[in-house]
Amino acid sequence: MTAAPSLSWPAETAPHDRLWLAFPTGGYTLGDTAADAHEARQMWADVAAAAADFEPVTVVVDPSQVEVAARYLRDDIETVVAPLDDAWMRDIGPTWVRDGSGGLTAIDWVFNGWGAPAWATWGKDALIAQTVAATAGTPVVSSLLVNEGGAIHTDGEGTVLVTETVQLDQGRNPHATRERVEAELARTLGARKVIWLPRGLTRDYEEFGTRGHVDMVATLPSPGTLLLHVQRNDAHPDFEVTRELRAFFEGQTDASGRRFDIVELPAPDALTDDEGPVDYNYVNHVVVNGGVIACAFGDRVADERAAGILADAYPGRRVVSLDARPLFARGGGIHCITQQQPAASPA
């Protein structure tokens, strides 16, 4: 595969200019009751506040939510007003890359509500990447690939993780082949090696799932190291899924030919919620300047163990854990609602 010579995708650990979020607007994210809506708004606001202790934060707010957002968001958090359908900035926002001179370019993927499911609306969200890029003052490279930020991950050295059931999903890219996807990721992200996970977590294939986002499964805290979600209880269907994924990664090499040092992030003890098997995982954290905003699940032993693993994986960064159960009940985690804007050139 030939990488696009002028574009490269920095690792999430590279210095950030800021972190972007979108404020919850309506539908299932806000829920059916005032208590549900408050829980959602407070959760998004808590993530924004935690990140703002480390770096600038900007939140996109729907015109209908401007006054509400002002009551929840800290005064030092910037806002941009634009129409929204939902609030998953990782998936609707742009993916920033660096050009040959170190400047930023925003990649604008096609967004169709995670494969055009009958329940989703996405007309407004599909325009958010352009809005965010314009606000950031960065040029845009548009892609015809239906893709989401939570469906791709990099080590910053040309290795890109994707999932067969996402990029090759008939609801997203019905005419795609591996070769076409890899060529587009080379053009837009400078990918030198694309690793195709066979699948994602069990919960992700239910009606409101993404059908295999990689950011619920694995992340690359540094080149050659892979943090992997593992379910150790054989009563959970992800027990077999994560065993198979570990075996898969043991047979892979990155863009530089290294085999991965696999570090396991064990799931908390909870197995189910009102909807069935949970997808609680600690992989879905976001790295910020000098810190890591991590998920917690009300399981003291597992939460502390995960925070320790993350501290070791990201030396020199302070780990801040937030109870993410309100997020996971709505379909995602902390990584899913955030999108980093890298600094224009390495610090």
Rank of each mutant, 00 (worst) to 15 (best):
V181T: 13
V140I: 15
G190L: 08
R178T: 14
A176V: 12
V140K: 04
G171A: 12
E179S: 14
A120N: 07
E157W: 01
E164T: 14
T131S: 07
V166I: 10
T131M: 03
A133I: 07
T188Q: 09
I152M: 15
A183L: 07
T135I: 03
W196E: 07
I152K: 07
G123T: 08
A176T: 11
P139Q: 06
I195R: 01
P198H: 10
G190W: 12
V160P: 01
G171C: 12
G150Q: 09
H175F: 13
Q130D: 10
Q170I: 10
L161K: 08
A191V: 10
K124P: 00
N173E: 10
R199P: 01
V181Q: 02
G200Q: 04
Q130L: 05
T121S: 09
V181G: 01
W122K: 00
P139G: 07
G137L: 05
L144N: 07
D204H: 10
R192G: 14
W196A: 05
D125A: 04
L145M: 15
G158Y: 02
D169V: 10
V194I: 09
G171K: 10
R180D: 10
L127F: 03
G150Y: 13
I195T: 03
V140D: 04
L145C: 12
R203P: 03
A176Y: 14
A191P: 04
G137A: 08
A191W: 01
H175D: 15
A136I: 01
T135A: 12
G123W: 02
Q170C: 05
R203F: 05
T202D: 14
A176D: 12
S143D: 07
H175R: 13
R180P: 00
L127I: 01
T154Y: 04
G137Q: 09
T202L: 03
V181S: 05
L144I: 07
A126I: 03
H153V: 08
W196G: 00
A136Q: 05
A176W: 14
L201T: 06
A186F: 07
L168Q: 11
L127W: 02
K124Y: 09
V162T: 15
A120L: 05
E179A: 15
T138H: 12
T121G: 06
D155H: 03
Q167W: 07
R180L: 14
T131H: 13
V162G: 09
A186L: 06
N173D: 12
A129V: 04
T131P: 03
R199A: 12
W122Y: 15
A151F: 03
D204M: 04
N173I: 13
A191Q: 06
